[in-house]
Every structure is written in structure tokens, then in C-alpha cells.
Simulated assay, not measured.
Amino acid sequence: MNTAAAEVIQLVGPGKNRQTNGKVSWNMKNNETAVLVGAKQIGEALNVPAKKIYTLLSTNSIPCVFKLGGKIAARRASLEQWLIDLETEAKAAA
């Protein structure tokens, strides 16, 4: 796991999501969308600054981001799975 991804695990930390039966539940509000557009929205979903999202992108540490209308975007479900994978890697390395 690279350093930038490890920092995301530290920044997100416990209590930001709820894990049940091996699946993460983000408790989406009615006004939240499945696709996050822009570093600000992605960062807010991960509870990290937009600048950290750009750092992750520049180091190819966040694989689930794509371009949508000239802006970066990510599916909320893909981010959830990415975090689960990072957590699994971190536990295996410990």
C-alpha cells in the first residue's frame, strides 16, 4: 500500500462509516447521489480535503476516479469498495 492511500485510512478513521455483514453502509441521505463530481464532493465523501484527492490522483493511488464532463468523478460504491480493499490490505500487513 502506498503512503497516500495509507493516509486516507488514517484520515477517514473509525466512525465515518458503518460496517455490517462485510458491507459498508454510508447512510446516504436522500439528497446524496451515487456519482460524486469534483474533488470537493469526492473529498467530502471521504472526509479529506480536495487537495488530498488531487494528491491521490497524481500518485495513481485512487483507481476509481474517472472524467465526467471535464471534471473528475467517482461512484460512491467504487469509493466504498476501494476503502474496503485498503482496509483489508492494511489488516493483512499488520
Rank of each mutant, 00 (worst) to 15 (best):
L57I: 14
N47V: 02
E32G: 08
T20F: 13
P14E: 07
A50P: 14
T20N: 10
W82Y: 06
S61M: 08
E87T: 10
A5S: 15
T33D: 06
R75M: 13
V37G: 07
P63S: 15
A93M: 07
L56D: 03
P63E: 14
K29M: 09
L11V: 00
I72F: 05
I53Q: 02
A92I: 13
Y54K: 12
P63L: 11
E32M: 03
S25A: 11
M1Q: 06
L79Q: 02
K29N: 08
I9Y: 02
M28W: 04
W82G: 12
K51D: 10
W26M: 12
W82Q: 01
V12C: 04
R18P: 00
I53W: 03
N21P: 01
N21C: 04
A77E: 11
P14I: 02
A6W: 01
V37R: 11
F66S: 01
E89D: 09
I84Q: 13
V37Y: 06
N47Y: 01
V12E: 01
Q19N: 00
I72W: 10
E87D: 06
D85K: 07
A77R: 03
K29P: 02
G38W: 01
M28E: 14
S61W: 00
K71V: 01
F66A: 02
K23T: 14
E7I: 02
L46W: 10
